[in-house]
Design a protein around this nucleic acid. Structure first.
Lengths: 343, 343
DNA sequence: AAATTACGTTAAATCGTTTTAACGATCCCG
DNA sequence: CGGGATCGTTAAAACGATTTAACGTAATTT
């Protein structure tokens, strides 16, 4: 009953519990983990001792013995993150939130590793058993290190290397849905504003766009904007296009910051959205929703993707299953005011 | 040069490095940590050996010896989270993103602990040296356990107990700003839609509202809605109010889901926002921005708050400073279409 | 020249848990 | 009655790092 308020109190260990309960340390361990059978009555004594002493296991020691940290990390790499701006972060955080819940349900904690300056350093400081890598680049630094170290990894996004465990996101499908929607809305002159970097998503988007436009017998116009320029870059590029007298009745800008830039350009030239020009983007985040009118986008079902990835990773860690290759759930079109007039 | 591809390879330890470098394990440790001086030339040998062997330190072992996990956790508690819905999560994730960056800059990883069913269980599985607790309730389960265990904690929000290290958020200021703005916009009949639970923020908001309305000689009308009912509850409550013939030209709904419900009710009765009724809410998140028109809200500067809290916590952990009590940065009003006509 | 200090290094102890192999006791079966 | 099985338990050996106290040598002071 007496609250021992000593300045420095030795940590309560499994040995202390053992002594009080009149058993050996090993038995206490077994009682806690449930790995081996322990007599019902002795277990009761142990439980009592634990409560009495306020024992809380030392996770570092446990981890050292078992070789597991009971932790997984979620990574998103640097370069494009800064470039693609808040979108990327929002994307990552949406995934992380869902992954954290899924992981905790299996008593594993999630370590959040946002894009930072020096990835390598961080990697050495963070204890984790496996990782989820969000939309890695082709030569993603995180992914490469993890793979080389033999850390179990599940990717969310298109896998950068042929057979890698991943929740596969098919950018072609995404592109097709968005283009199809713009066409359905009656748009015929639809420039594509796309990132200049060699990321897979840019490439696939572009190819899919060109193929589809060709199939429809419509002109394809690709406007490349450096990711680093983001919103302003896209605005400038579209203004140039408009001022050069090239007409348009739709704009497809998968990267949401660029879509925002496009909106600004259209407004500046007095074009009405959606009456004159329809606009669509990919990720239905902050950015897309803050426009007026809000942008038509896709519900990528990030929560489901995160859950899939997390359970796949944990199954793999527990040896319950081989590495798997899953397909992301089909995205859903979220139609908003930027393509269909509201109210 | 030969890639040893053995089925099971013993982990490379500090001893292996020591052997190769021709020194003792202790010296390798010193070289790595930089805690004691190591001859320049031997350090070079050690570095070489490390690279050669691909040594990566075992963090569990290190943690066991040092007693530090190099990890902090960020918590948000259960009950209201589910109630307040996505808003709460968005809030948490915004804070977490920023905290993660701040922590990683000091080589500490951030563990994300979203609201879950059984907080106690999780606590026992997660290794962390300190914690950030986001907007704890008066009797917050997480906070109580952490305090009892003597884990260093910094709170973001109003502190539930007199002197607790915190980044203090002043709900009175927040309430004052929002009410002031609605008044400035010309609103005179402004019901307050507030949560029914005994959370501090509800109480403070309500008191501030009543005081201010009294001071202005205006009628105060408080509509209580149970947090669990959220959006629909608020909608129903406001519909009832309207149908009872009580007129209004403003609505203050701090909880964003309830603000959404209010918008629905107003639309349903053909009232125009902002021409007939001005609407404002507190947190400028997803919800607020997705309304048409988007809701006027506050930029609470969560990123700065998170950064403050994180550095305060880490300073405390490193013994660099005593527990501190900081004030959150002043919020900024974000005026949107729900109070001021746009375009 | 003797005494002291400073420096870099080391062997050994230590952190607290899980796991291993072995143990005695009890029970079952032939 | 003796030879397994079965059961619950235990003592001791890991796990891999950091830290302690002590050491020899070289440099500096007295």
């Amino acid at each position: 009953m007496n609250k021992q308020i000593e300045a420095t109190r030795r940590r309560v260990t499994v040995k202390d519990v053992a002594r009080v309960a009149g058993v050996s340390a090993g038995t206490v361990s077994n009682a806690i983990s449930g790995k081996r059978k322990v007599d019902h009555e002795t277990r009761a004594r142990i439980d009592k001792a634990i409560k009495e002493l306020g024992y809380v296991p030392n996770l570092a020691a446990r981890g050292m013995r078992t070789g597991r940290a009971n932790t997984i990390a979620i990574f998103s790499s640097m370069p494009t993150a800064v470039a693609a701006g808040s979108a990327r972060l929002g994307f990552l955080m949406e995934v992380a939130a869902s992954a954290a819940v899924a992981a905790l349900e299996r008593n594993v904690a999630l370590v959040l590793v946002p894009p930072i300056e020096h990835p390598e350093t961080a990697l050495g400081t963070i204890p984790f058993d496996g990782a989820i890598v969000v939309e890695p680049e082709v030569d993603d630094p995180y992914w490469k290190v993890l793979r080389d170290r033999g850390v179990p990894v599940v990717i969310i996004g298109p896998p950068p290397e042929a057979p890698a465990p991943a929740v596969r996101v098919d950018h072609a499908t995404i592109a097709t849905m968005l283009i199809g929607h713009l066409l359905d809305c009656g748009a015929r002159e639809i420039p594509l504003i796309v990132g200049r970097s060699q990321r897979q998503s840019n490439r696939v988007f572009r190819e899919t766009y060109e193929a589809r436009m060709a199939a429809e017998g419509l002109p394809a116009r690709v406007i490349e904007v450096s990711e680093a320029e983001g919103e302003l870059g896209a605005e400038a590029a579209l203004l140039a296009e408009l001022d050069a007298g090239r007409s348009m009745d739709g704009v497809l800008a998968p990267i949401d910051s660029m879509a925002a830039g496009a909106m600004a350009a259209l407004h500046a030239r007095g074009l009405r959205v959606p009456q004159d020009v329809r606009v669509a983007t990919r990720y239905d985040g902050f950015r897309a929703r803050s426009q007026t009118p809000a942008l038509t986008a896709l519900n990528l079902r990030l929560d489901e993707m995160a859950q899939l990835a997390t359970t796949a990773l944990l199954d793999q860690l527990e040896g319950m299953s081989e590495p798997v290759y899953l397909d992301a759930p089909a995205p859903e079109l979220v139609v908003r005011g930027s393509t269909v007039p509201r109210d």
